[in-house]
């Protein structure tokens, strides 16, 4: 039983299913919520699901984290692939930046219009 749980393929499956679930939750949030905050948070959740999937897919049982510490000069077969980790780190940073910016906009928009409902944003569109 534990053997099965400890297999890489099984873990990958779990990660895939889990991240897909999170993805769906986020997606439903994006498409159904009316509150701008919630929409951006949902987008963040969708993104996170992708991060999870990517990192999870590269995890292999029995390999160490790819951290260059004392005495280790080189990435080799004992470590998991370092590239995804680096990529996700960068992506997370970008994601945070985007989220911060978007929330700033939302706050400013709310201050000016008193509105935070996406359906009531009618500033744009064809003039009649």
């Amino acid at each position: 039983m534990l053997e099965t749980l400890n297999q890489t393929t099984f873990l990958h499956t779990v990660v895939a299913i889990g991240s897909f679930t999170i993805f769906t939750i986020g997606l439903v949030g994006v498409l159904s919520k009316k509150n701008l905050f919630k929409i951006f948070l949902s987008l963040s959740i969708v993104e996170s699901s992708l991060f999870l999937f990517f990192i999870g897919s590269h995890f292999e049982v029995g390999k160490a984290a790819p951290i260059v510490a004392d005495g280790i000069k080189l990435f080799d077969g004992h470590m998991v692939d370092p590239v995804p980790q680096a990529m996700i780190l960068t992506t997370i940073v970008i994601g945070v930046a985007v989220l911060a910016l978007s929330l700033t906009f939302v706050v400013n928009y709310y201050r000016l219009s008193g509105n935070i409902d996406i359906d009531k944003m009618d500033e744009l569109g064809e003039v009649q």
């Binding site: 994006v30 951006f40 987008l43 910016l101 978007s102 906009f105 928009y109 219009s113 500033e123 744009l124």
Partner: peptide, 12 residues
């Protein structure tokens, strides 16, 4: 208002 509204839309 208009600008922020556009920016929010763009960001989503």
């Amino acid at each position: 208002k208009v600008a922020y509204s556009g920016a929010i839309k763009y960001m989503i």
